[in-house]
């Protein structure tokens, strides 16, 4: 099982779906961010799996995962500062309170 591509892809799909579920359900901004991390990780697993099973002579997948991790870090950095700023402004980190673009 650990040598078949499909199992890895199933794991990553499951992780992806769970991440989406969290993204759509949670109201806490930080919880949404956490779900987003799950999605990104599922993408990383996908890349590595395909790299190992379809193009083993290259390291492109791994290089890409490095980039994904780096960008995830940058994104979390900005997102967290925005969340902090928003929480200071509105005294709440409920995403349903941020609906100024209504209408």
């Amino acid at each position: 099982m650990s040598q078949s591509l499909q199992s890895y892809l199933v794991v990553s799909s499951a992780l992806f779906s769970i991440g989406i579920f969290g993204l759509l359900m949670r109201r806490n901004l930080v919880a949404i961010l956490i779900s987003l991390e799950l999605v990104l990780n599922s993408a990383s697993i996908n890349f590595l799996a395909f790299n190992k099973f379809c193009m083993p002579n290259k390291v492109t997948g791994q290089v890409f995962v490095i980039f994904i991790i780096a960008l995830a870090a940058a994104e979390v950095c900005i997102a967290l500062s925005l969340i902090l700023w928003l929480s200071r402004r509105k005294n709440s980190i409920n995403i349903e309170d941020a609906k100024e673009l209504k209408g």
Binding site: L23, L24, I95, E96, K99, E100, L101, G103
Partner: peptide, 16 residues
């Protein structure tokens, strides 16, 4: 315009 209620998650669920 009722569709545009300003909530991110509603938009996302529609798109997804």
């Amino acid at each position: 315009s009722l569709l545009q209620n300003g909530r991110l998650q509603d938009y996302l669920s529609m798109a997804l």
